[in-house]
């Protein structure tokens, strides 16, 4: 009986949380198709005359038509650069570090780890000065490099842990087959690590996609901003047109959620494997 009660409350709790999680997405999509006067007048009504014009309104927001589209492209450039930088630099290093002595491996890990505690505001102003000095402001790709470097510690730590557990028999076999060490890495290790690399990469992607603290400073021109920063001015421009604001919010929020549902296997795995460093 007692167990049943506990079970009931557990069930109630998880359902309650699920509803709380889904409510905003539901309303963002609902309001995206509602007329502004309906959002104010009958926000909860499920039967209403849809106003698809909200989406074209949102698309045409900002200085030029399709500014939201530009923001997506910028986000894409920024995130892709961040991924390439973090993976290309950190993955090989994480692999070869496993051959160092245990002590050395530890020392490397701790040094890299300390990089994750540095507060972002400590970095923002110097970044800004340096980027400005070299004329690199308002360039999403170059800003992506900064995001990529900041993702290196996490990528390194997670990949290093994965490689440490990598079956050594495979490496030995490769060596006996006469493969060089770099070939062993490229031909044997990498193909077997794709799943883990995707998982770790997704963590970087989520972070770089959402962060605005660095981008708000390094990408100030509206045509150079990613969606995370662009949305801020977007909301300010559209306060009298709530429908369009929500259409914009849905354009920003729904694609990553869909992408996540497709890749959820990797994400959950990546996190459960130990994805808790930024």
């Amino acid at each position: 009986m007692k167990a049943l009660v506990a079970k009931f409350f557990a069930q109630l709790g998880v359902w309650g949380w699920t509803v709380l999680v889904l409510i905003p997405f539901f309303f963002i999509m609902l309001f995206a198709t509602k007329d502004t006067s309906d959002i104010y007048g009958k926000p909860l009504a499920l039967i209403f005359k849809p106003n698809w014009g909200n989406f074209s309104g949102a698309w045409n927001a900002g200085p030029d038509e399709g500014t939201i589209g530009v923001w997506f492209i910028n986000t894409g450039l920024l995130v892709t650069t961040a991924l390439i930088v973090s993976l290309v630099v950190a993955v090989p290093a994480a692999y070869f570090t496993i051959f160092l002595s245990l002590k050395q491996n530890r020392a490397v890990m701790i040094t890299v780890l300390s990089g994750t505690v540095v507060p972002t505001i400590l970095l923002v102003i110097p970044y800004f000065k340096a980027y400005n000095q070299f004329g690199l402001l308002n360039k999403p790709i170059v800003t992506g490099v900064a995001y990529g470097v900041l993702a290196i510690p996490t990528t390194f730590l997670l990949m290093n842990r994965f490689f440490l557990d990598f079956p050594r028999e495979v490496l030995e076999a490769g060596l006996l087959d006469g493969l060089s060490n770099s070939k062993i890495f490229r031909k044997l290790v990498l193909p077997l690590s794709v799943g883990q690399i995707v998982s770790v990469g997704i963590l970087t992607l989520i972070w770089a996609w959402g962060d605005s603290q660095i981008a708000i400073v390094l990408l100030q021109s509206q045509s150079a901003q990613p969606i995370s920063v662009g949305m801020l001015s977007f909301a300010a421009d559209f306060t009298t047109n709530l429908g369009a604001t929500f259409a914009g919010l849905s354009m920003a929020a729904i694609p990553p959620v869909i992408l996540y549902i497709i890749l959820s296997k990797y994400v959950t795995k990546g996190i459960a494997l130990g994805g808790i460093t930024k």
Binding site: F27, I206, L249, V257
Partner: peptide, 21 residues
């Protein structure tokens, strides 16, 4: 899967939604 939705959506969009709510 669902519980991670809030972590996926861009924080800006999420925050704008909540502040209007």
């Amino acid at each position: 899967i669902i519980w991670f939705f809030p972590g996926i959506a861009p924080p800006t969009a999420v925050a704008i939604f909540w502040s209007s709510s």
